[in-house]
C-alpha cells in the first residue's frame, strides 16, 4: 500500500497549507471587519454607543490589504503554474521561477 503512504504524506501538507491560507486569511479578514467596526464606533460595535476610533479604520484596511495580498499570491500561483512556472518561497518573499 505504498499509495496510502504517499497520500497521507500529501494530505497533511495540504491540511497545513489549507489551515494557514484557508482559515487564517478569513480569520484576518474577520479581524479587519471587527477593527473597522471598532473604528466606526456607535451602533456598529459590540458595546453600543462606543466612541469612534480613527486608528481602527486604518488598522482595518491594513488587515484587508494583507488578505488581498494573500489572494493576489493565490492568483499569481495559478497563472504561474499555467505558464509552466512555479512560485518559490525559498527566499521568504515569493518569486516566480522556472519549473
Amino acid at each position: 500500500m505504498h499509495n496510502l503512504g504517499f497520500a497521507l504524506e500529501g494530505a497533511w501538507k495540504v491540511l497545513a497549507a489549507g489551515l494557514i491560507l484557508g482559515a487564517g486569511l478569513p480569520a484576518l479578514f474577520a479581524l479587519g471587519i471587527r477593527t473597522l467596526a471598532w473604528g466606526d464606533g456607535g451602533s456598529a460595535e459590540a458595546t453600543a454607543g462606543a466612541a469612534p476610533h480613527a486608528l481602527g479604520k486604518v488598522l482595518g484596511w491594513v488587515l484587508f490589504a494583507i488578505v488581498l495580498l494573500g489572494v493576489v499570491l493565490g492568483i499569481t500561483f495559478i497563472v504561474a503554474s499555467g505558464l509552466g512556472k512555479a512560485l518559490s518561497f525559498e527566499h521568504v518573499f515569493p518569486t516566480i521561477v522556472d519549473k
Binding site: A7, G10, A11, K13, V14, A17, G18, I20, L21, G22, A23, L25, P26, F29, G74, F77, I78, S81, L87
Partner: peptide, 19 residues
C-alpha cells in the same frame, strides 16, 4: 466566505503539491 476560502486554499495547495 469560510467555505469558499477553504475550497480555494485546498484546491490550490493540493495542485501545487501534485495531489
Amino acid at each position: 466566505m469560510a467555505a469558499e476560502s477553504a475550497s480555494a486554499a485546498v484546491i490550490l495547495a493540493s495542485s501545487h503539491l501534485g495531489f
